[in-house]
Amino acid sequence: MKRFVVAGIVTLGGFLTANAQCKPITSLVENFDTWKDINKCWTAQGGKAMLYASDKKIIFYSMTSPGENMYLVTPEIKAGTYTLSLDISDNGGDTVLEIFSAGNASDAKSYRSIAKASKITGEKKTYTISIKKDTHLALKVLLNGVHQAVYVDNFSLTSKK
């Protein structure tokens, strides 16, 4: 019984520590070079497709499920105005990126579009984003073909003062 209680306390402490490390932030620079899996302060929603970290970048991969809504959600961001830039490319075909604010990282119904959907052309994308209250950002990638992939790297969110 004593071991069971100690194990429960250690497990609960681990959850509390993980949440404490994911406090709202005012800047975020990530090149994904050290990621072996999606970072615990981020959320990945791939649906029937795949969204994963590999080869020092984030990969959205349609497999045999084109049209799947796929989201990569940042840690919570404090209210303010930001410049978001990221390198984004694909392996060909028709692919689209849209940016959302996400009140609840795990509930796509709470996502609100804050930047128009734009075709992924292999060039660096830069956005000015205004956030009225603390929220997450969700990158939505739409892959319209079988075995399509989109690659995200060098994500940078900096506060505009």
Results as ranks from 00 to 15, higher is better:
53 A>I: 02
73 V>G: 01
72 L>E: 10
57 K>L: 14
49 A>C: 13
67 G>K: 09
78 K>I: 10
38 I>N: 00
38 I>F: 00
54 S>W: 07
45 Q>P: 05
55 D>I: 02
53 A>H: 01
60 F>W: 11
75 P>I: 01
47 G>A: 11
57 K>C: 12
70 M>N: 07
44 A>F: 03
67 G>A: 12
48 K>N: 15
47 G>V: 05
78 K>M: 12
60 F>G: 00
65 S>L: 11
78 K>C: 06
52 Y>T: 03
46 G>P: 11
60 F>H: 00
70 M>L: 14
49 A>S: 13
64 T>I: 13
74 T>H: 13
45 Q>D: 05
79 A>F: 09
79 A>D: 14
65 S>A: 13
50 M>K: 12
61 Y>F: 15
74 T>E: 15
77 I>W: 02
64 T>Y: 13
61 Y>L: 08
78 K>G: 09
51 L>A: 04
50 M>I: 15
55 D>M: 04
39 N>S: 15
77 I>M: 01
55 D>F: 10
65 S>I: 06
42 W>C: 00
62 S>G: 08
76 E>H: 06
53 A>M: 03
58 I>H: 04
40 K>Y: 14
43 T>Q: 09
56 K>N: 14
43 T>W: 01
60 F>I: 04
39 N>M: 11
50 M>Y: 15
79 A>V: 06
67 G>V: 11
54 S>F: 09
53 A>W: 09
68 E>L: 01
47 G>R: 04
66 P>I: 05
44 A>S: 07
66 P>W: 08
51 L>K: 04
53 A>K: 06
78 K>H: 08
66 P>M: 14
65 S>R: 15
75 P>A: 00
66 P>C: 12
41 C>S: 04
62 S>L: 10
77 I>Y: 05
40 K>S: 07
51 L>E: 08
40 K>W: 13
65 S>G: 10
65 S>W: 14
62 S>M: 13
57 K>R: 09
44 A>I: 00
46 G>W: 06
55 D>N: 12
41 C>Y: 01
68 E>G: 03
42 W>E: 12
78 K>N: 15
41 C>P: 04
70 M>K: 07
73 V>P: 14
73 V>N: 06
44 A>T: 05
46 G>R: 09
48 K>Y: 12
58 I>N: 07
51 L>I: 10
73 V>H: 08
43 T>F: 01
46 G>N: 10
39 N>A: 15
50 M>A: 15
76 E>C: 06
65 S>F: 14
47 G>C: 08
52 Y>P: 12
79 A>Y: 08
76 E>P: 11
58 I>G: 08
56 K>H: 14
63 M>N: 12
